[in-house]
Nucleic acid binder design. Structure first.
Length: 111
DNA sequence: AAGGTGACAGGGT
DNA sequence: TACCCTGCCACCT
């Protein structure tokens, strides 16, 4: 497994429950690759590691990765179970839910 | 080996 | 607001 993929996973695992970030924000934080590569890396996360990939959306707050989950609605269900409301595949109040990798949380969140 | 394909993003219209 | 175009870069034909 490439080091790049591991680093994407590491950042994704730090996203707190109930918060989300974007492909571009992760790419910027790592200062490596592009947003497309982050999506590519997360695509390989399925069944590979304990990565809350459902907390990563595109810059508009849309659940563009939903079709890569085991069911088309799983990504939305996981987010809603964390208290993140979604309408039309889009996160409500996305700006408020947005989390930047540079915002270091005191409490580490598993999964 | 060259071209197509993405879980994308930013700027222009 | 929403669509379109371009840059992006590793992988797969």
């Amino acid at each position: 497994m490439s080091n790049y993929i591991e680093r994407v996973y590491a950042v994704t695992r730090r996203i707190p429950r109930g918060r989300v970030t974007t492909y571009g924000a992760i790419a910027d934080y790592l200062a490596l690759g592009s947003a497309r590569m982050v999506g590519w890396a997360l695509n390989h996360s399925f069944g590979t590691a304990n990565v809350p990939a459902h907390r990563v959306v595109n810059r508009k707050g849309e659940l563009t990765g939903r079709l890569h989950f085991s069911t088309p609605t799983l990504m939305q269900q996981l987010l809603e179970s964390e208290g993140v409301p979604i309408v039309d595949n889009r996160i409500v109040d996305f700006e408020q839910r947005f989390w930047q990798p540079t915002d270091i949380e005191e409490v580490e969140n598993e999964q």
